[in-house]
Deep mutational scan, measured.
Amino acid sequence: MKGKVVSYLAAKKYGFIQGDDGESYFLHFSELLDKKDEGKLVKGSMVHFDPTPTPKGLAAKAISLPLE
């Protein structure tokens, strides 16, 4: 699924993505496929991810940034 980063707290390594389906997904650095892309996780960045339901809500897994 595609989505847009709505927040990312680099110090805490987490944030949120708004998916194309309108839902909010929890984003964690550990799910970023290329850790070098962390600096690109800023508000408004477009990402691809696997939407995954968890006991705490919806989460983004296997997060990647589109090729530039």
Rank of each mutant, 00 (worst) to 15 (best):
Y8E: 01
E68A: 12
K13L: 05
F29T: 06
P53H: 14
S64L: 10
S24P: 06
S7Q: 11
V47H: 00
A62P: 02
K13I: 03
S45P: 06
L9V: 14
E23L: 15
P51Y: 07
D20W: 08
K13P: 01
L9Q: 12
E68Q: 13
H28M: 07
L33Y: 05
V6Y: 08
D34T: 06
Q18L: 15
P51H: 04
V5I: 11
S30K: 11
F29N: 04
L65C: 08
K13T: 03
V47I: 07
P66I: 15
M46K: 11
K12R: 12
Y14W: 12
L41K: 01
L27F: 15
F26P: 00
Y14V: 05
H48D: 07
K61W: 07
L41A: 02
E38L: 07
Y25P: 01
K2M: 11
K36D: 12
L67K: 14
K4T: 13
A10C: 12
K61V: 09
Y25R: 00
M1H: 06
P55E: 10
E68T: 12
D34P: 03
S64A: 09
K2I: 10
Y8F: 04
K40M: 09
K56N: 10
A59W: 14
Y25Q: 00
A10K: 14
K36C: 12
P53Q: 14
K2G: 10
V5Q: 00
G57M: 04
Y8I: 08
F49E: 01
L67M: 13
L27R: 00
T52D: 09
D20L: 09
E31Y: 09
V42S: 09
I63S: 00
F16R: 06
L33G: 04
S24T: 15
K13S: 05
E38V: 10
P51Q: 04
L65Q: 04
F26V: 04
K36W: 08
F49H: 01
K2F: 13
F29V: 12
H28S: 12
G22D: 06
F29E: 04
G3K: 01
A10S: 12
M1Y: 05
A59H: 10
G44E: 04
L41Y: 02
E31V: 03
V5H: 01
A60W: 00
G39E: 12
A59V: 15
K13C: 08
A62C: 12
D20V: 10
A11R: 12
I63D: 02
P55G: 09
M46F: 10
K56S: 09
A11V: 11
E31D: 10
K56W: 13
P53C: 13
G39Q: 13
M46W: 12
F29G: 04
D21Y: 03
S64K: 12
L9M: 13
K43E: 08
F49L: 01
T52Q: 13
M1L: 09
G22L: 05
K56E: 07
E68I: 12
L58T: 04
